[in-house]
Design a protein around this nucleic acid. Sequence first.
DNA 1: GCATGGAATGTATGCGCTTACACTCGTCCT
DNA 2: AGGACGAGTGTAAGCGCATACATTCCATGC
Lengths: 364, 364
Amino acid sequence: MKPPTVYDVAAHAGVSIATVSRVLRRPDDVRASTRAHVLAAVRELGYVPSASARSLAARRTGVLGLYFPGFDAMEELDDAEFNQSEPVNVIVDMPDSGEVRPPNLYFDEVLRGSELEAWRRGFALLVGVGRGSNPEEMVSDIAGRVDGMAVLARSVPDELLVHISRRIPVVLVAGPRRGDNFDHVSVSNVEGMRALTEHLVDRHGVRAPVFIAGPADSPDDAERYEGFVQALASRDIDAAALPLLRGDFSRLQARSIAEDLVAGGGALPRAVVCSNDQMALGVLDVLRRRGIRVPEDVIVTGFDGIEAGRQSTPRLTTVHQPMVDLGRAAVRAMLSRLDNREQPPISLRLPVQVLLRESSEGSA
Amino acid sequence: MKPPTVYDVAAHAGVSIATVSRVLRRPDDVRASTRAHVLAAVRELGYVPSASARSLAARRTGVLGLYFPGFDAMEELDDAEFNQSEPVNVIVDMPDSGEVRPPNLYFDEVLRGSELEAWRRGFALLVGVGRGSNPEEMVSDIAGRVDGMAVLARSVPDELLVHISRRIPVVLVAGPRRGDNFDHVSVSNVEGMRALTEHLVDRHGVRAPVFIAGPADSPDDAERYEGFVQALASRDIDAAALPLLRGDFSRLQARSIAEDLVAGGGALPRAVVCSNDQMALGVLDVLRRRGIRVPEDVIVTGFDGIEAGRQSTPRLTTVHQPMVDLGRAAVRAMLSRLDNREQPPISLRLPVQVLLRESSEGSA
DNA sequence: GCATGGAATGTATGCGCTTACACTCGTCCT
DNA sequence: AGGACGAGTGTAAGCGCATACATTCCATGC
């Protein structure tokens, strides 16, 4: 009834457990005929090695962990809604049913990159998305199960990270670099926004762009603004003198910000530079509704490179972040440290791409 | 240098390892003062329990597994492209740069649902996406690490599944029900397509819709076609007499199918019913280019409910599958079986939603 | 004063595997 | 012929924890 173990296989094949283990780990160390017997026994018994025992004995789990902070929205699904019985439900779906999907896409891609790289290197991937309750517990749980883990942004208190990193390599993904003791992988926020802004100044003669920022506590936002400032400074423009509007990265809030901007009565800015794509899309929504032409009247740019920005009309000029590569790089960093725990902390910056599209360049 | 163990903590706190273990597992069985000492030691030493040892001793891992078949495309990223150094790269992104993202979205959502449900029930989630080489190996690997696993569609040979299910519960997600021995979770493909088709006949007077099918070996496609046929039959229409075009679920191929259809010279069909959204979008592409009005001249419908169908113009009428719920249901099925391994096989069909949008209903 | 019993803690075993080391044979060399 | 040696296999010692069982402690009751 209970799952078979090495002992069962060994007995069934008439060999010792060591031999069974060898057949599975280093087949070449075993004579071909013995190997065949053992494999036959494995098949007959339905033997699957226990990774727990294996990990314990080998002192490594062969698993890497990935932890994301949760987006609060939509996570609190309750159990009730689950038991409806009608197999079909016909609904007239109105156009403005709101945004269904939060920008998790970001995570999905990082996840996909990590997953890909991990398995390719012979590791399995354990995923955890922090939800309301007690992220610390979940992180510790993951930490106990893996050989190394990646943590997104500032989702975990430093203290815990230090605690965990005494046991396994921890790499921070995106967000700010914390202390100088963790490996860190992120994207070139500053350079990306700088290059985009310089383009606007140099090619489109923009002298007084409006910047729509994200939450004040977002390190990514801060870096992007920094790039914006640098670009202008290098063109002898003082960014501090320009309007800075603060949003929360959401499309919805960006809409009301844009409304205010447009309703202000004053002249429209030549360009609106947004700290992420969602907000830029919100701005586009408003301009379209008001009949203001993009990019002829106002240029709009975003940051992230999400799919929706490629589907909008006009398509959104933006800075594309290599999310998949981020995930892959995180895994590589872990493995690299696993390889040599003494090496100095790694801090990797992945390159970004400025994608010039119709929201700034006009249509073809 | 090595990570601290229970023994270290016990020594440091002046208690036995059993007490340390208890403090962590059932804190109430230990006197408050002792507990405090132990916890202090844990903190000082940076102790994190080894899940391997824990699982081995407790005979359960607390992890659930999820295995997806891989989409061949895009998975074969090579290592080289990874070492470019320029932090920014400015690119003029032309409109028809093709489809970047394959419809993995499907998986992303199932994954999110599983992840959510698993953690909520106190389990971690291990993810594996099959890539070209040897899915069997990966599946076995996962199987050894978890208490139960979910496998998507027909991505794994039956033989292996049987082998594995001798050790842990296996639940099949989507795809056909195989044998009657596995738990199975899927969506109401038949009913969904049937309801949609009936709507077209009853409300729009469609009498001879064209069906664009997916790959012949896709069980989902077969079920959808079945629903299509049933709906027509119930309205006294013989589906067998109607044209059935076979695509491969891709947008690209659907375009050429649509081209043929339009170029055929004959009258346009009143409606084109597609077996998935991607293909429906391909059809929309062609009709738009040809200046054929949707839905006035031709009604187009899809199946899946992907995000892109909500972004298209006109927005796509489709049948929405509850992918997140699929993932959640899979986890529930595993746990249910874990709870009672003797219960009869579960086969769950999740309800779908027919979303009527402008590609069939006209604009508001 | 001592027996009694529950609460708190310690002792010892085993979970299923890897692996260092020991052992057994042929084979080849001298 | 005797020994050296390497390939193939077995023996046994953990890996870090949970837990059944044994032990100790202390408050009660008589």
